[in-house]
Simulated assay, not measured.
Amino acid sequence: MTSHSYDVIVAGVGAMGSAACWHLAKRGLKVLGLERFDLGHAMGSSHGLNRIIRLAYFEGSHYVPIVRRAHELWRTTGDEAGMKLLHVTGSIDLAPEGAGPVESSLQSCLDHGLVHERLDGREIARRFPAFQLPEGHVGLWQPDGGFVASEKAIYAHVGLAQARGAEIRTGEPMLDWAPTAQGGVVVRTERGTYSAGRLVITSGGWIADAVPALASKVSTVRQAIGWFTTRRPELFREGAFPVFILSVEEGAFYGFPLYEHPGFKLGGPHFGREPMDPRDDDRTPSPRQVALIRECLRRYIPDAAGDPLTLKGCVYTVSPDEDFIIDAVPGVPQAVFASCCSGHGFKFASAIGEILADLSTSGQSAFDLTPFSLDRLAA
């Protein structure tokens, strides 16, 4: 067994943890990142080539300042790493008029001065003929939206962190941890015991193992994504087709232009998420989930309704109100965590990494984190 000392230990090196490692390391701190799987693995919620970034945010206007910072950081981090992480395609929210999502996205644009357009069904069909929407659907177009290359983002953050001296250990999950009388922490793995002044916990579906206060507050579910054969790929190429959220009677689906895969990527539906234990190694989407996705394609995006080329599942860690939880472990201010991002967190990872670095070094953030406190979920 080995024993080493660090300034900060990061438990979980996925989207959030890799970003935290980078922001901590570039501040000159001695950082250890512990990851239970391989780097860029497909057992959590950060794989699948890309993830949407939306600035028009129907989940709440309070998210917009953080996602704007994330948008900026994805660009600058990509530049520093020599990778293109941020792809600006424009984003569109599509829903029946008056149903809520388009109106909430519009409000977030008005609150924060985001460039946007409200589109009726005729204009949606003219700009994006791949959609065949029901009568009464409208759209909220925001030209700054797009997607982030998900695995590349993790590789970029880790590579930059390592270049600043961070140590990243894969295949080495944190087994347990404890605060010390000196105000630090001790972390134990199968390979050794490590001490640090601060601990950052970003372990996704395994978060409740490290933060028992979350055990009754969060759940884990399997979400399905797939890539499907297109009949007219020219309609879906990057530059001609946006990222989108589509709300229809079957649920809320999300999709992308073609990117590094011959198939058209669609995920969802929102209500089709199925409970799962992250310790179960099977990530295969259920037949029910696949059938819902294929029915959405058949009805609303028929030129992408071909045979599936790739099907994957991912783990969402969901809070009761589906807002994030970013806080210190109760009674242990030297240990902070971010998880329970409820399936809409990846886009924020670059900024949340910075937030976690701020909380670990100063105990404060430039952003109002009150909406994401653990206390809001107190019974």
Rank of each mutant, 00 (worst) to 15 (best):
M1K: 10
H4K: 15
G12T: 04
G14R: 07
C21G: 09
W22M: 14
H23S: 12
V31L: 00
V31G: 00
L34K: 03
L39S: 09
G40Y: 01
G48P: 13
R51G: 12
A56K: 03
Y57N: 06
F58W: 14
F58G: 04
E59L: 08
H62E: 15
V64L: 12
R69N: 09
H71T: 06
H71V: 03
G78R: 01
G78D: 05
L85D: 04
A95C: 13
L106G: 06
L106Y: 03
E117C: 10
G121Q: 14
G121D: 10
G121M: 02
E123R: 14
I124Y: 09
P129Y: 02
P129R: 00
Q132D: 13
P134N: 11
E135R: 14
G136R: 11
G145I: 05
A153Y: 01
V158Q: 06
R164F: 11
L175V: 12
D176L: 08
W177M: 04
P179Q: 04
P179W: 05
T180G: 10
V186Y: 00
R188F: 03
E190F: 05
G197F: 00
R198G: 00
L199W: 02
L199V: 01
V200R: 03
I201W: 05
G204I: 04
I207E: 11
A210H: 14
V211M: 01
A213N: 04
A215D: 15
S216R: 14
T229C: 08
T229M: 07
T230W: 00
V243K: 06
I245W: 14
E249M: 11
P262S: 05
L266D: 08
P269A: 05
P269K: 03
F271W: 09
E274T: 10
E274C: 02
D277G: 09
E295I: 03
L297N: 06
R299N: 10
I301Q: 00
P302A: 12
P302S: 11
D303W: 08
P308V: 12
G313F: 05
C314A: 10
F324D: 08
I326M: 12
G331C: 07
G331R: 06
V332N: 03
A335C: 08
A335I: 01
V336A: 00
C341T: 14
C341E: 11
F348M: 11
I352K: 02
E354K: 10
G363T: 08
Q364N: 12
P371V: 07
L374P: 05
